[in-house]
């Protein structure tokens, strides 16, 4: 596989392996602080609210709504030439106000997208085998 045929794959690191391992079995899991119970994305070693290191990997519903989006039409990576236009979105997840993550919105076009639209997670495999959480619009 030429590295330029695809977007980069994520490299799991200390403390982030469970996030990527969950994606590989079709689960969206984020850290929940065991002291203050706040959720956080992306993975971080300390709770951003109370600085505790203690956490569990909470299974989320994968449901949320779009807070913002962009349709990328200008390719800045060799693999993007075959992919443009594509949609990068920010999703606020239903489990906690302000719990937002960056992802792709798939199986739709910019004309169908609006802020506030309900979305649900699904998973796509990167050519290297790692699955990525992405989103699709809920049926109206």
């Amino acid at each position: 596989m030429s590295t330029l045929d695809t977007f980069p794959y994520p490299i799991p690191e200390f403390g982030t392996e469970p996030y990527w391992a969950a994606a590989n079995v079709g689960e969206l899991r984020v850290q929940r602080c065991l002291d203050c119970r706040r959720l956080r994305w992306e993975p971080a070693p300390l709770c951003l609210d109370c600085q505790s290191q203690k956490h569990e990997w909470a299974l989320l519903s994968g449901r949320g709504h779009l807070t913002t989006w962009t349709e990328i039409t200008h390719p800045v990576h060799p693999a993007a030439f075959a992919k443009v236009p594509y949609l990068v979105v920010e999703v606020e997840l239903v489990e906690q106000a302000g719990l937002k993550m960056i992802s792709n919105l798939i199986n739709t076009t910019a004309a169908q997208v609006e802020i506030g639209a309900a979305v649900s997670v699904t998973f796509v495999a990167h050519p290297n085998g790692q699955h990525l959480p992405v989103f699709r619009l809920d049926a109206p």
Binding site: T3, F7, P8, V76, A80, K83, V88, I102, H126, V134
Partner: peptide, 21 residues
């Protein structure tokens, strides 16, 4: 322009795989 790295670590691991560069 994006770098030609095959893999992305740290913050980039949550952006580059989605084509956010």
């Amino acid at each position: 322009q994006a770098s030609n790295a095959a893999g992305a670590a740290g913050l980039h691991s949550y952006q580059s795989p989605y084509g956010l560069f």
